[in-house]
């Protein structure tokens, strides 16, 4: 049971990180490789601020969310939008955005590495996690917050994308950007809003994960980026519910490997499992099969 609880916590960490990335990739078609850097830098700014002033939990979260949203919006305005404008077709734009994202990510990473000398950093906060015990299980308040927040945001995003007008518009862009623009969907405005939300989610994940782990390193976002990438592909691009499932499947696989004390096989077993699933369902667990008309 304790291992299931650990898997739920780990899955929720992955989920919080992946949601923003899945949202922009699955709707406006931007595979944002700067997402990990946004995640890390939001927490880093929280670290810099709390180094001078001790802040409560919610204040740190608010700073990280705001920094993430601003960073992501700026990335869209200054990097991705100009790339989109100058690209002849969507495929060329996707490739350039990919490389652009890596370039953007290098800047906050270099700043954080220089400031911290790549030492781990955390928050000076009045918040102190407590450990709850019930039926022999142990869980911290931070882990509980992560599980509840991850699930709540995952479900809320799924429902919003399915039922709201903006969600419909975003899904329309995801299916065919040009046709949706012809139908009156304001792609640039929606893209900007979506990137801001994704950045805010990255900031939220950065702050919560730093509280949970005690500290993160400037490179932490890179490690999570690979996992998030795998989760989105496993769940099925464009399906938020698939992302939720993918996050918990990857976490369950990793927890099983740890339970078996095959610690150095975590990535091999987990990604091997994903590979096997994709052999059977190339579109991912909940991704839709593309119908091509000739």
């Amino acid at each position: 049971m304790q291992d299931l609880l650990n898997a739920a916590t780990l899955g929720s960490i992955y989920l919080l990180f992946t949601l923003g990335m899945a949202l922009v990739w699955g709707t406006i078609g931007i595979l944002n490789f700067a997402h990990g850097a946004t995640f890390m830098f939001s927490a880093f700014i929280g670290h810099v601020v709390t180094k001078h002033t001790e802040l409560p939990f919610l204040a740190v979260i608010a700073i990280a969310v705001a920094v993430g949203a601003v960073m992501s919006t700026l990335t869209q305005l200054l990097a991705f939008q100009p790339i989109l404008k100058r690209s002849k077709n969507q495929h060329a734009a996707e490739m350039r955005i990919l490389i652009g994202g890596i370039g953007v990510a290098a800047i906050p990473l270099a700043i954080a590495q220089r400031y911290t000398r790549s030492s781990p950093f955390g928050f000076r906060s009045s918040y102190d996690a407590e450990v709850y015990q019930f039926l022999g299980l142990r869980i911290t308040t931070t882990a509980l917050i992560i599980i509840v927040t991850g699930l709540a945001i995952g479900i809320a995003l799924t429902v919003w994308l399915r039922n709201s007008r903006q969600g419909l518009a975003l899904r329309a862009i995801g299916v065919d950007a040009e046709t949706s623009a012809g139908m009156g969907v304001n792609r640039p405005a929606l893209a900007l809003g979506t990137m801001a939300v994704a950045g805010g989610l990255a900031g939220l994940a950065g702050a919560l994960l730093t509280f949970h782990l005690g500290a993160i390193a400037p490179e932490t976002g890179d490690t999570l980026l690979i996992k998030a990438f795998a989760i989105v592909v496993l769940g099925g691009l464009g399906s938020m519910l698939g992302t939720v499932l993918g996050a918990y499947i990857l976490a369950a696989a990793e927890t099983f490997v740890i339970f078996m004390n095959w610690g150095t096989w975590v990535n091999a077993v987990s990604f091997g499992l994903i590979f096997l699933i994709l052999l059977v369902r190339p579109q991912g667990l909940l991704g839709r099969k593309e119908v091509r008309r000739t």
Binding site: N6, I216, T223, G263, N267
Partner: peptide, 17 residues
């Protein structure tokens, strides 16, 4: 004896073991 990888970030499982 519990080996982990360079990319391991969460030690909840190992800590409980």
């Amino acid at each position: 004896s519990l080996p982990v990888e360079m990319t391991t970030q969460d030690f909840a499982g190992q800590a409980q073991q």
